[in-house]
């Protein structure tokens, strides 16, 4: 069953085209990721789907309701965690929770089981003002408040930005458990490594989706052999590889350099290794690898 349906959405702010024809569908209980850098249009899309902003053209439905004509129905059944901290800084943790519950005509007790997993981690600080919480705790409180009315669809706009890798992993585990409750989750992130944790992803850049598929499907579309290169020294390695005629893409990736050849050839690995050895590099290793979502994003965003 389709829970979120988006058709050809366009939105401009003056001369800036924030969204340039975006379409996708998310199924009930799906964890759908929108992956892309700041300024790509992610937040604009979230605001349109949560009925806070009206698109210039195109249409969308959430939980079967039209985002323009039936905005009231949508507001009652979605949870929204905006990118910027949006809770009441001067209310305590507990007061924020009670406030959001009462706005939606429910109580914290009624839906406690749904948020317990996350809320328990901040409950020891329930008398503290929200403004005095650390970044990670604010995020947990914001997620708890966004869920306290048991929404059908949850929109999370960059919930893990600025969060360290360990806390990010924990956050994604929590999303996995919410998904099991049948909640549809649309989540955006600038971190490419989080893409693999989604059922399906859309890669967004400059207001357009440049790819939409399962993470595996995106990787399978890469289309060219990708190689990882390493050697005993890194200084100059990138530039030396860039100087090689037969290579197309060439960029740093952690402690290695990823390369693709202009033309597919069984000889690429050997030729690159020999060329580097001739330049005096030792321990040269060139091996064929499976692309990551980040490699795919870089390829798809190349104009």
């Amino acid at each position: 069953m389709t829970e979120v349906s988006v058709r050809e959405i366009f939105k401009s702010y003056g001369k800036v085209e924030a969204l340039r024809g975006v379409s996708f569908e998310a199924e009930r209980g799906e964890l759908f990721g929108i992956i892309g850098p700041d300024g790509a249009g992610k937040s604009t899309l979230f605001r349109i789907l949560t009925t806070l902003l009206v698109a210039d053209s195109g249409s969308a439905t959430v939980a079967g309701h039209d985002v323009v004509k039936e905005y009231n129905a949508i507001r009652a059944c979605v949870g929204y965690m905006p990118g910027r901290f949006s809770l009441y800084q001067d209310l305590t943790v507990e007061e924020n929770m009670e406030f959001f519950a009462s706005v939606f005509g429910t109580t914290v007790e009624e839906n406690y089981d749904l948020v317990a997993d996350i809320y328990r981690q901040i409950e020891p600080f329930k008398k503290r003002k929200a403004g005095k919480l650390s970044g990670g705790m604010k995020q947990k409180l914001a997620l708890s408040c966004a869920m306290i009315h048991r929404p059908r669809v949850l929109f999370l706009d960059e919930p893990t930005t600025g969060v360290d890798p360990v806390s990010r992993k924990e956050f994604w585990q929590m999303l996995g458990r919410l998904k099991e409750e049948g909640i549809t989750i649309v989540v955006s992130t600038p971190y490419m490594d989080e893409a693999s944790l989604c059922d399906r992803i859309a890669l967004i850049m400059e207001g357009r989706f440049i790819g939409i598929d399962t993470p595996r499907g995106i990787v399978a579309q890469y289309g060219a052999p990708l190689y990882a290169v390493r050697a005993d020294r890194r200084g100059g390695l990138l530039n030396d590889l860039r100087g090689m005629e037969e290579l197309e893409a060439c960029y740093a990736f952690g402690n290695e350099v990823h390369i693709t050849a202009k033309q597919e050839s069984a000889e690429t690995e050997r030729r690159v290794a020999e060329a580097l050895a001739a330049k005096g590099y030792g321990d040269v290793e060139v091996r064929r690898i499976e692309p990551t979502v980040e490699d795919c994003f870089m390829k798809l965003s190349r104009r």
């Binding site: 892309g36 930005t161 965003s301």
Partner: peptide, 10 residues
Amino acid sequence: TGGVDPRARR
């Protein structure tokens, strides 16, 4: 580099 696209980050 928070939030910057992979190409710009490099």
